[in-house]
Design a binder for these strands. Structure first.
Length: 642
RNA sequence: GCCUCCGUGGCUUAGCGGUAUAGCGUUGCCUUGGUAAGGCAGAGGUCCCGAGUUCAAUUCUCGGCGGAGGCCCCA
């Protein structure tokens, strides 16, 4: 007998030897249709696999993560099947499921064109309609597998490298090496779309051949595909490049160059507010502001190691007789400031803060809006402390990071990578003892602040462990913003020291830290996070005044002047347009408060207030409104309704 | 850097081997209207740049620059 547990918690007993598909059918027609695979005693199996006695069985559908994986992976096979029919000479590499959808890497002599993709999609549809069952072939030996995949050089390489049992799935005229499980029949793939094609290197190594990676998405239901495509369209509406243009925040110029965005007045307001807030968070915690030039002699970076590390990413500047480098990092400069002063143990920790622009000649294919640029402004800071001070300092920094992102409303939007040493300890600089203290300090700070962190082995920098804060943009791409890094290397290279209690020279630890990461990248995430609807303190235009008729413009100007005096960012819409038109434009510019003035307001010395969320708050005395705005803008906390 | 796609007035875009649509914006005039687009008229384009093919290129080919997505990279 087989005991099975249903999703509703009830149990059922059935004869052994039957398949997952039969069990699903026994439970109900609906489940029979939705079933994709089966989990037997915790192991995923094909729906067609016979189930042995006393097994605990769970039917897997698209609702589960595993179900999606199987579904998308089978879709990748369907894609490969179609490609093989149209291009018999194509060689298959790998075709996994990804977070959303699937891809297949294919080696073909001529890259796919858009027309090819349409043909492939049509062929996939044909295969689905043929409703051919998928069979699983278990290979007893590697040779057996090799024989089945003899024309597939990439698959043969995978077979050579694999240790587990090898299986091949076969559907009609097509067979493909695959661990499984797999859909019993591709007819379950009711709707799909090839989304894009890109170049991708075999095994992810640039030295290897570049293959064609065909991406797709699929669903067991037509409506789900429609919803998915709709969701992608919606996400594109908050794209910071698009919003930045629409709201006049920043400008790209072909003459200035790619990866070099220019901040327009409205963008600069946001940036200034962020920098001001960052300094507010630091000034009470013992930080001091410094400033460093944008170029330095090459020898500085040769000493720091950045010369070798950055290689051709450095912008070089030729002086009359000396070679300079546009700074790719601020650290070496900050080291020089520290070195100049003879600090004693009593002075430590020393905390320098400088929002500073650095320059990196990134590969052209990497540049993207504000997220990846060639001139980026780090809200950089360096701490110089004793080993036993690391923990307290890291805790303070984590506290600042939490407060900063809490205020912005992004505290639930990130995960933290606790990047520590891997097994090969020889790749890292510094003693085991120092590493252990540093790693533990970071971990304790993460624990005590209840960070959503994952310990990732081998992700540490060679010079020390770190905490990286990872955020996602509107389209789900991950970006690193905040970071806290311990560094045992630079103090060594620059021979930094402080005088200890015993009047001896001792080496400090350096902690690099950034809260926003880079102001440019942070702004890109910020714009998408708010979809352009900034809270009042960040908003480039906080108030728009518009008149019912032109004769009220004078009053509008008076009110605006009064507000400007109080530091409110206000604009008057002077156009002779209809009220509706002016309201609409202000709403689309996502301006927080829209004030309408006419006969009544002039008489009563009031303004009629409307928010960008269609709330009409009615008439308010001018002074009262100003008071309210100032209070809201000072507090930086998000209003509940946004 | 590599792969695919793309580049038309400030923005969004139609189109085509014979120098070009439309909407928004902008300017002027009419309207002075009370909360998401009032009407009419006008201005504005070396169709990204360069070379080639052609009687003729915005359109085809090649190269460059720029953009989107992906790969590699990301201190």
């Amino acid at each position: 007998m087989i005991k099975i547990e249903l999703p509703d918690g009830s149990r059922k007993e059935l004869d052994s030897g039957i398949t997952g598909q039969q069990i699903a059918e026994d439970i109900g027609q609906r489940l029979a249709q939705e079933a994709l695979a089966v989990k037997v005693d915790g192991t995923l199996k094909d729906l067609t696999a016979p189930i042995t006695a006393n097994a605990k069985v769970e039917i897997i559908t698209f609702e589960q993560e595993e179900g999606k994986n199987i579904f998308w992976h089978s879709s990748a096979h369907l894609l490969a099947h179609a490609i093989k029919r149209i291009f018999p000479d194509a060689k298959l590499a790998v075709g996994p499921a990804i977070t959303e959808g699937f891809y297949y890497d294919i080696d073909v002599d001529t890259p796919f064109t858009t027309e090819d993709l349409e043909k492939i999609e049509a062929e996939m549809k044909k295969i689905v309609e043929e409703k051919i069952d998928v069979e699983r072939i278990e290979c007893k030996t590697k040779d057996e597998a090799r024989a089945l995949q003899k024309d597939e050089p990439y698959k043969l390489q995978i077979i050579d490298e694999s240790v587990e049992n090898i299986t091949v799935y076969k559907q009609g005229d097509f067979q493909d090496l695959c661990r499984g499980p797999h859909l019993p029949n591709t007819k379950k793939i009711k709707s799909f779309k090839i989304t894009k094609v890109a170049g991708a290197y075999w095994k992810g190594d640039e030295k290897n051949k570049q293959l064609q990676r065909v991406y797709g998405i699929s669903f067991p239901d037509k409506k789900m595909l429609k919803d998915y495509l709709f969701r992608i369209e919606e996400a594109k509406k908050r794209d910071h490049v698009k919003l930045g243009k629409e709201l006049g925040l920043f400008v790209m110029s072909e003459l200035v160059g790619s990866g070099l965005p220019l901040l327009a007045p409205k963008g600069m307001i946001i940036r200034n507010e962020i920098v001001r807030y960052l300094w507010d968070l630091h000034k009470s915690k013992g930080y001091e502001q410094i400033w460093t030039p944008h170029i330095a002699k090459d020898v500085l970076y040769k000493t720091s190691g950045h010369w070798d590390k950055f290689g051709d990413e450095l912008f070089k500047v030729k002086g009359k007789s000396e070679e300079f480098v546009m700074k790719p990092m601020n650290c070496p400069h900050h080291m020089q400031i520290y070195k100049n002063f003879n600090y004693s143990y009593k002075d430590l920790p020393i905390r320098y803060f400088e929002p500073a622009t650095v320059y990196r000649d990134e590969k052209s294919g990497e540049l993207h809006g504000l997220s990846r640029v060639r001139a980026l402004t780090q809200d950089d800071g360096h701490l110089f402390c004793r080993i036993d001070q690391i923990k307290q300092e890291v805790k303070t920094i984590v506290g600042i990071i939490r407060e900063f992102y809490e205020t912005i409303g992004m505290n639930d939007d990130y995960w933290v990578s606790l990047s520590v040493r891997g097994d090969d300890k020889s790749k890292y600089l510094g003693s085991d003892e120092v590493w252990e203290i540093a790693e533990q300090s970071l971990q304790e700070a993460a624990d005590e602040n209840q960070l959503n962190y994952k310990r990732i082995e081998g992700e540490a920098a060679f010079y020390g462990p770190k905490l990286d804060f990872m955020f996602k943009d509107a389209l789900g791409r991950e970006w690193q913003l905040a970071t806290i890094q311990c560094d045992f290397n630079l103090p060594e290279r620059f021979d930094l020291s402080y005088t200890s209690e015993n009047n001896e020279k001792e080496r400090p630890v350096v902690i690099h830290r950034a809260i926003s990461g880079s102001l440019e990248r942070f702004m890109s995430v910020l714009i998408e996070h708010f979809a352009g609807k900034f809270p009042l303190w960040l908003s480039p235009v906080q108030v728009k005044i518009l008149t019912v008729a032109d004769r009220f413009l004078q009053y509008a100007d008076e009110v605006a002047a009064q507000m400007r005096d109080m530091g409110i960012r206000v604009e008057v819409d002077r156009r002779s347009e209809s009220v509706s038109k002016k309201v609409r434009d202000a709403q689309m510019q996502k301006i927080n408060y829209i004030l309408v003035v006419g006969e009544k307001e002039v008489e009563d010395k009031t303004v009629t207030v409307r928010t960008r969320n269609n709330e009409v708050l009615g008439p308010q005395a001018v002074d009262e409104f100003i008071g309210h705005i100032i209070a809201e803008a000072t507090d930086r906390t998000l209003p509940k309704d946004e």
